[in-house]
Design a protein around this nucleic acid. Structure first.
Lengths: 231, 231
DNA sequence: TCCAAACGTTGCTCTGAAACAAACTCCCGG
DNA sequence: CCGGGAGTTTGTTTCAGAGCAACGTTTGGA
């Protein structure tokens, strides 16, 4: 394990109030690991023995049913803590996380959680804030799933990904990690067929451009209209 | 405001480790209030200036869309903390809570939150545990909503209510608070018509008995089969 | 270089459940 | 005791979107 550089953590909310020496100490206790696209970082139901910080890449957090269906609950982007089951007194992970792109994450054993929250000002606060945002976001997804038609859900899902990971390219805003039609259907509770049709239609209308695993939103505003419009 | 009795809090998880004198102190700072069926305790988006403990009754936690649809995210039963936005660094409530039956709740101003977590052992722990359970539960609901057919969702919703509030009656297990067909459709993202048909069919099959706002599950096992069965 | 697997597209059919419509029943308040 | 509103039931119609099928395209590895 190569020695980690302090600059990795400086500026990230959970550690923003800390002195360089404290960051050094935190880093010295961390394990860093790279994950190939498609690899699981941890799985639903397994012992929650570590908590993580994503440094680079993107993750999908998924839950599956006994029947084999699965849905993508949310995405994690760089700088976020994840797998923070210990914060909620859980001893197993409630969901599975998979690298959506090649990713790099730090992790610490759970026993350090209480140490971090006790010693480092703002660490607990920031973690719970993150949790609060996720809870709110999931509630919103749930509401949408229960009340909105497929077309709107797919439009919203695209907008969420653009919002979380969008980067400017010449023709619009590109989602920064690979996304298949199947992935989108797993976010919206529909089928890949329906998603494919929608994307084709939107491409014809000049709202998106998509190729294999890659999506560029060329007209975000019209997508907002699609996702918002009552009726 | 009549003086509150210590026995109200004794035995409830957030306060279970406390001495009588500490409970007295907590109670002296509480406001107690009764809510008629259908009354809102707080509303989505409003300033989160208090946090609450439900002593008696049941609450529905709902979220609404701009388009006027609404869904029931979860129910709160006696003994649970709710409206604990301050724990998550939120300054507004993320959802609305409505008394599903006549209810009684204590509340405290948010500024006491940090005091409680600092002074009373186990208070923070218990609160975050509750939050963790809710997060897990909502994720499960979301998964179900995205993958399961209406019939299964309605069966699961009934089972969840039975599990949370069921009380034995001579013909089976009764859901302890008033539930309309509309309420169930708001939990499952369908229409009251569909729910009505399902309940009629299940009544014919001897699985449930229902009258206006009242539901008794007479054959929980068959309901489990309906909610579980793959395909 | 070629093959196979992964990913994407498109047409067609069929059905679950929403939408629309109309009574019916219970309960509460005047 | 009566009237009206809230909640429920049931029938009929309609259609979005799932399911099925078949084919096209890209990509990476042998």
């Amino acid at each position: 394990m190569p020695k980690l550089d302090e600059s990795l953590l400086i500026g990230l909310p959970p550690f923003s109030l800390l002195a360089r020496s404290q960051i050094r100490e935190i880093l010295d206790q961390a394990v860093s690991r790279r994950y190939d696209e498609g690899t699981a970082i941890f799985r639903e139901g397994h012992d929650a023995d570590r908590f993580f910080l994503l440094l680079d890449g993107y993750l999908r957090v998924i839950r599956s049913t006994p029947g084999g269906d699965q849905i993508i609950v949310l995405h994690i982007s760089p700088g976020q803590l994840f797998g923070i089951a210990p914060a909620l007194q859980r001893d197993t992970y409630p969901a599975t996380s998979i690298a959506a792109a090649e990713s790099l994450a730090l992790s610490w054993p759970v026993r350090l959680w209480s140490e971090f929250t006790a010693n480092y000002p703002g660490f607990a606060t920031e973690s719970y804030k993150t949790l609060g945002q996720r809870l709110g976001q999931i509630q919103e997804t749930l509401t949408e799933m229960a009340t909105q038609a497929v077309e709107k859900r797919v439009a919203s899902a695209l907008l969420r990904m653009v919002h979380q990971s969008g980067r400017k390219v010449d023709t619009g805003i590109e989602i920064a990690f690979p996304v298949t039609r199947q992935n989108i259907s797993d976010m919206t509770g529909t089928t890949l067929h329906t998603v494919s049709r929608l994307l084709s239609a939107w491409q014809k209308d000049g709202i998106v451009e998509s190729s294999r695993k890659r999506i560029v939103v060329t007209d975000p505003h019209r997508l907002v209209v699609l996702s918002d419009l009552q009726g």
